[in-house]
Design a protein around this nucleic acid. Structure first.
Length: 571
RNA sequence: GGGCGUGUGGCCUAGCAUGGACAUGGCGGCAGCCUCCUAAGCUGCAAGUCAGGGGUUCAAAUCCCCUCACGCCCGCCA
């Protein structure tokens, strides 16, 4: 399973016994220091108060209380730390055997017996998905992959916004605006073709009050459950959605289910939420509309009013979102939503309202900041966007150019397949490598970087490993720790051993950016090994080194897959 | 005005939850490395008031307070 676990257990156990012997009964946590210092370390500062001794003296005392260990070759104190060095032969042996028997399951944890419903993307179907929002599906999809590897049963879901002014406006535009009034789209994809109507309809609504009245009329019919209007709007939304889904699939994002917002109007569950909220003591009426007063829930000022009906009795977006969340809680143990930072207040309102209704569980939210352009925020309505399709096309083209520079032996189609993996991978990698709450300013030269900390860097290391294995022909992968003594080999093994822990950290902490970090370190360690340690001409050590190369290949491959990146065997 | 978030070498970024050993790595810059498993690689060098100020602590990028800058939100929109 996790090759580090036996070491951790032994060390923690020994420390526990040592501390007990010294009369300390205190919780402690061991750290993973930089590899050149030690493998595990216990900071002893935390015991200084209880023992009234210097951390240095404690570390020294404690060292003398640690018995001889099986898996640890060295225990020493240094500047107030008690350090441990693994028995390297054992580490190499356990790690490589684990990888070579598990192969593509290395890093996979056993079932946790918990189901997770992960909602992500959920962008309004009013235009092609642009990179301002593209962080959502990429974070969501990567998190889903890491959670599945961590042993959770994950379902991903896209909540389709087919209710409200924006989609109705689009449907109206398609019906009433002649094609000649809309600028020719650059692409034939439905989402690109249709977005012109959305922009034009917005302009018309702003300049012509009659249009606004027509939209309002459609909206009323929609809310009243008018089948014809709902069908018309849904068809429009579906067409847009098809285009969006196609873009998502191009970057390796596939969703399990699509839930339509209008469902909660049609099945009456949104109205049901309204009735239940009206019966609570937080409910206040204001000129026919109803809201909850959430002053008790940590919100301030004007934010305390959470309206859940209009004065005409119709429901609002958040009301329907409540019905959706109640529905989701019936279907899974745990809910996670990937949301833009603009949704924060809304989610506080929603969580408070759910609590008021007696829902015990709360949805977990992962918020991300939007990707903006150097000149500012993107807007579908204004047309100031770089679409995901633009980026994919540019990245693939650029990647193809790079492949052609280095490979003259491949067919055009073979080169395209590789370029696709590199181009699409780069997009994913560049977005997920930065933590979600940090803002990103999109720059073409950064997005199309294929060197250093990038997807191709990791993919290249994998391709190099594959290349060695290909050239090795038939061989027997052997685990011979005594033949893997080079510092570069030992360093690489230590990195390989950490992979299962990293998978888990990404899943449990919902912090997927640590995977790209790890991936870069892994690829870098492999490249150093590759540069300095010959494999095919290694003589006696050849099979042992091939075992290490194959192990590296599996971990690189599993790591790439956990991020949804392609794994080309040559580049 | 209030709330939430972000601020780390020229640029990007890790570390912040659980304070601790010289602040991680990349891009760009400079200097090197392909008769040998793909140089999308490897090695070395230069470059930092961890936004600013105060506090807590033996110890602060990390915790607390204040200030500044930027982003997002504060609709009977979605």
């Amino acid at each position: 399973m996790d090759p580090i676990e036996p070491f951790r257990k032994e060390v923690e156990n020994a420390i526990g016994l040592g501390l007990k012997a010294m009369g300390v009964d205190q919780r402690f946590e061991i750290e993973l220091p930089p590899a050149d210092i030690a493998d595990f370390a216990l900071p002893c500062f935390q015991f200084a108060k209880a023992l009234r001794k210097s951390p240095v003296a404690i570390a020294s005392d404690l060292a003398s209380h640690i018995p001889k260990l099986d898996l640890v070759s060295e225990v020493w104190n240094d500047k107030g730390y008690l350090n441990f060095r693994f028995n390297e032969m054992t580490l190499v042996d356990l790690t490589l055997k684990e990888i070579l028997t598990s192969k593509d399951a290395y890093g996979c944890w056993p079932s946790q017996g918990t189901s997770i419903l992960l909602e992500h993307t959920s962008v309004n179907p009013t235009g092609p998905i642009h990179i301002g929002r593209a962080r959502n599906p990429l974070i969501g999809d990567t998190l889903a992959r890491c959670l599945r590897l961590s042993g959770y049963e994950v379902t991903t879901e896209y909540y389709v916004n087919d209710v409200g002014k924006q989609v109705v406006l689009l449907a109206w535009g398609i019906e009433h605006i002649p094609p000649s009034d809309v600028p020719q789209a650059e692409r034939g994809k439905a989402d690109h073709r249709l977005v012109g109507y959305y922009r034009k309809a917005n302009e018309l609504m702003e300049s012509d009050p009659e249009v606004g009245e027509e939209i309002a009329d459609m909206l009323r019919k929609f809310e009243a459950g008018d089948r014809e209007v709902i069908e018309k709007v849904r068809r429009t939304a579906q067409t847009m959605l098809d285009g969006i889904v196609e873009s998502l699939e191009a970057v390796g994002v596939e969703l399990d289910d699509f839930i339509w917002e209008s469902q909660f109007i049609l099945d009456g569950s949104a109205k049901d939420v309204v009735e239940r909220l009206k019966g609570t003591r937080y409910c206040v009426e204001e000129e026919g509309a109803f809201y909850l007063d959430l002053a008790e829930f940590g919100v301030h000022g004007r934010d305390t009013k959470f309206f859940f009906t209009r004065s005409d009795g119709t429901t609002l977006y958040t009301t329907r979102d409540m019905a959706y969340h109640i529905d989701k809680f019936r279907r899974a143990d745990c809910l996670i939503n990937i949301l833009g930072e603009d949704q924060k207040l809304g989610m506080i309102h929603l969580a408070s309202a759910l609590k008021i209704l007696g829902v015990e569980k709360v949805p977990e939210n992962v918020f991300y900041s939007f990707v903006s352009l150097p000149e500012g925020r993107m807007s579908t309505r204004k047309g100031t966007v770089v679409t995901l399709d633009d980026l994919i096309e540019e990245a693939e083209e650029r990647a193809l150019g790079e492949v052609k520079k280095r490979r003259t032996d491949l067919t055009e189609e073979e080169m395209r397949v590789i370029a696709r993996a590199i181009g699409r991978g780069s997009i994913r990698y560049n977005i997920i490598r930065v933590q979600a709450e940090k803002p990103i300013v999109f720059r073409w030269e950064e997005a199309l970087n294929f060197e250093g900390n990038s997807a191709p860097f990791v993919q290249y290391a994998h391709a190099r490993a594959c290349s060695i294995l290909r050239k090795a022909g038939a061989y027997e992968p052997k685990v011979v720790p005594s033949l893997l003594t080079d510092p570069y080999e030992k360093k690489l093994v230590r990195v390989l051993a950490r992979f299962p822990g990293v998978v888990r950290e990404c899943g449990e902490k919902r912090r997927i950016h640590v995977m790209p970090s790890y991936a870069h370190e892994l690829a870098s360690s492999f490249n150093q090994f590759y540069t300095y340690v010959p494999v095919l001409k290694a003589g006696d050590a050849r099979d042992a080194r091939l075992g290490l190369v194959e192990s590296s290949m599996w971990v690189l491959r599993n790591c790439l897959r956990s991020m949804g990146l392609g794994t080309p065997e040559e580049m």
